[in-house]
Amino acid sequence: MFVVAGVLAMPLARAEPDADEVLIAPSAFHGNWRVVARDDRGESALMQIALQHGAGQPEGHGDYTLFQPFCDAVAGQPITGMSDCELIGASDRFDQVVPRRRWLVLVFRPTADGQPHTLAVRRDGDRLVGQYRNPDLTLPIVLHRTD
């Protein structure tokens, strides 16, 4: 015991793992990723995502932040990074992060109409490849690891 600001205090106990704790290895999708349109030569980041997913787990979790080039993508325009929309800087959690065989499907609702937008990605070497879909378009994407 010791005294801090006139109050008797007990030292904090070290946290120990639970006896029945099971550690799960991260899946190939786990980590931080920079999302770009596959055909954008300038590789402008549409969004940044952080995924938490354990190998063999039926679902995961993730967060996203949208960048200015996402305005072009959501409108189905060439990626210039010069468009303006209310989505710039929006951050939130994915509604779903679900593996489907070799794919990981991420569902989110970034627009005011609440329509689902989807990223469906699979491993391709050190990166992920797939598609961004909203109710009006499908855009091929590439995800590069940032961690």
Rank of each mutant, 00 (worst) to 15 (best):
Leu128Thr: 09
Trp33Tyr: 01
Trp103Cys: 05
Arg127Met: 13
Gly6Leu: 07
Ile24His: 12
Ser27Leu: 08
Ile24Leu: 13
Asp113Gly: 01
Phe2Asp: 12
Met82Phe: 15
Ala90Tyr: 11
Pro135Phe: 08
Arg41His: 06
Ala13Val: 10
Pro78Ser: 03
Val36Cys: 05
Arg100Ser: 09
His117Asn: 08
Phe94Ser: 05
Pro135Cys: 07
Gln57Cys: 15
Leu66Lys: 03
Arg101Gly: 15
Tyr132Glu: 12
Pro110Phe: 13
Asp113Arg: 05
Asp63Pro: 08
Phe2Ser: 11
Asp40Trp: 08
Ala5Met: 13
Leu143Ala: 05
Thr80Asp: 00
Asp63Met: 14
Arg102Tyr: 07
Asp126Gln: 15
Gln48Glu: 10
Gly6His: 07
Val35Ala: 04
Gly60Leu: 07
Val98Phe: 02
Val121Glu: 01
Leu119Phe: 09
Phe29Arg: 00
Leu51Thr: 00
Thr65Phe: 08
Leu12Trp: 06
Ala15Ile: 02
Gly62Phe: 07
Pro116Asp: 02
Gln115Ser: 05
Val3Gln: 12
Gln115Trp: 00
Leu143Ser: 00
Gly81Gln: 01
Asp147Met: 09
His53Leu: 12
Phe94Asp: 04
Arg127Tyr: 09
Glu86Leu: 14
His61Ser: 13
Leu128Tyr: 10
Gly76Asp: 10
Phe2Val: 09
Ile49Lys: 02
Asp20Gln: 15
Asp126Lys: 13
Gly130Leu: 02
Leu87Lys: 00
Leu143His: 02
Phe70Cys: 05
Ala15Pro: 01
Pro26Lys: 09
Phe29Pro: 03
Gly31Arg: 00
Leu139Pro: 02
Leu106Phe: 02
Ser83Leu: 07
Ala73Phe: 10
Pro69Tyr: 01
Ile79Asn: 07
Thr146Met: 11
Ala90Leu: 12
Pro11Ile: 00
Arg38Ser: 14
Asp124Asn: 11
Thr65Lys: 12
Val35Gln: 03
Asp126Met: 13
His61Arg: 13
Ile79Lys: 07
Ser44Gln: 12
Glu21Arg: 12
Arg41Phe: 05
Ile88Trp: 08
Glu86Tyr: 15
Asp39Met: 11
Ser83Thr: 10
His61Ala: 14
Gly81Arg: 04
Phe29Glu: 00
Ser27Trp: 09
Gly125Ile: 05
Pro140Lys: 11
His144Gln: 14
Leu23Thr: 12
Phe70Lys: 02
Leu128Ile: 11
Leu46Cys: 07
